[in-house]
Design a protein around this nucleic acid. Sequence first.
DNA 1: CTTTAAGTTTCGGCATGCCTAAATATTAGC
DNA 2: GCTAATATTTAGGCATGCCGAAACTTAAAG
Lengths: 236, 236
Amino acid sequence: MPKLKVGKRRTSAAQEDYLKALFRISGRAATLVPNARLAEEMGVSPGSVSEMLGKLATLGLIVHDPYRGARLTPDGLKVAVEMIRHHRLIETYLVRALGYGWDEVHEEADRLEHAISERLEERMWQALGQPAFDPHGDPIPAPDGTLVEHPTLPLQSAPAGSEVTVSRISDRDPAKLRAVERLGLTPGRRVMVVEESVWESPIVVSLDGSQISVPLGLARAIRVEGDAEGGTKPPG
Amino acid sequence: MPKLKVGKRRTSAAQEDYLKALFRISGRAATLVPNARLAEEMGVSPGSVSEMLGKLATLGLIVHDPYRGARLTPDGLKVAVEMIRHHRLIETYLVRALGYGWDEVHEEADRLEHAISERLEERMWQALGQPAFDPHGDPIPAPDGTLVEHPTLPLQSAPAGSEVTVSRISDRDPAKLRAVERLGLTPGRRVMVVEESVWESPIVVSLDGSQISVPLGLARAIRVEGDAEGGTKPPG
DNA sequence: CTTTAAGTTTCGGCATGCCTAAATATTAGC
DNA sequence: GCTAATATTTAGGCATGCCGAAACTTAAAG
Ligand SMILES: [Mn+2]
Ligand SMILES: [Mn+2]
Ligand SMILES: [Mn+2]
Ligand SMILES: [Mn+2]
């Protein structure tokens, strides 16, 4: 009896990174992403993107509309969300179990997310008590791929006078994370927007009674939730 | 001032695997390893080995004596030992911190050893209290590359009547590890050799008063220490 | 419309790592 | 020592992923 190779095709780390990038750009909506946007997000040339899109389309992980763009299929979405779960779980584990700073975890998670087994994923998840959010306030997808995204807006778009809760900080730039931490604007903190940004001026918020000036470049990395109740909340 | 790229060449996972294999075969002695032996150990063709040896020699990680064989340079030895430290630390961490069985860790460690940072290595080491041995009784190299190997012999070579301590079990075959565990011959256990192997017969040892029959194939995977005192000992 | 600019794909190259088969060197047998 | 078996190296290919430049499509401007 010949041993049939049943399509146990493993996606490569590179392929997984493209799928993740598509998800970052268009999310569950899975709208058409133009080649150039993806090239920028991945830091590769447009030519490289075209080639990879061909492969991913063959694998049924994306749909490619030539000269128009690409979007994730349900299968591709599953892979992307799986990698995001790995990434955020690893970040959470490094901070909570191994004493990493939240500004030290992103790179490490970006490498490890492609290398861990389902068993390790499960063990970390259980060891942490099935966490729902990572250190940056980003929701951790459930094992089945469910991913609840609270509606948020960038801090610089919050209207003056509104009271908001810090929800998520972009995990890509360690220096920004350290700056955010120094200001005390960590996920879960409630702040009042005192002054909106005019002509690129810093945003002023009040936190625990004291006024804090937030440079626009930093405010763009901070997403907040306009207060409403419901569902599971980010760490408070 | 132009930013000079100072030779921060990163070794690839494949290169690291070749260096590890060289170390497994000839250890610190760094004697010449013939191409075919390395090909067997790596599970690749002789042609592939020749090519890789060329690259590693260029990088100064091995010395290649054409048609004779290859051996690690001090630099290559450092990389190999570094990977072995990663491997054994990861295995130890998975068992002690995440509840893995000792038969479940090898594959995972083989993937992760190439992906973890020096920071993660350090954090795991501290979290475990600077362990000296992995779950299979293999010594974990110190951060500076120091590696103390106790002299051991395969169980099937131990003379009848001798009292020995189980020291190390090969971590490559999960099924053998489970069999060894069922027999209770885990690292640190003291046993008396009752019957040596004759004509491939099982070895009989006594453990806690009861007699245990160890198939030759299993005995070959078990290394023991003829009792003498000194130094740090494997887990008891 | 038609011309042009912008974005996308294709092409030829390069690097890594693997394979098989052919060429070559070493070693062992006589 | 010379030939034959054995081991090693080299050559030609294939797969993955990347690049820059040429070819092509689409969209914008006139
Ligand atoms: Mn997973
Ligand atoms: Mn994060
Ligand atoms: Mn290290
Ligand atoms: Mn081990």
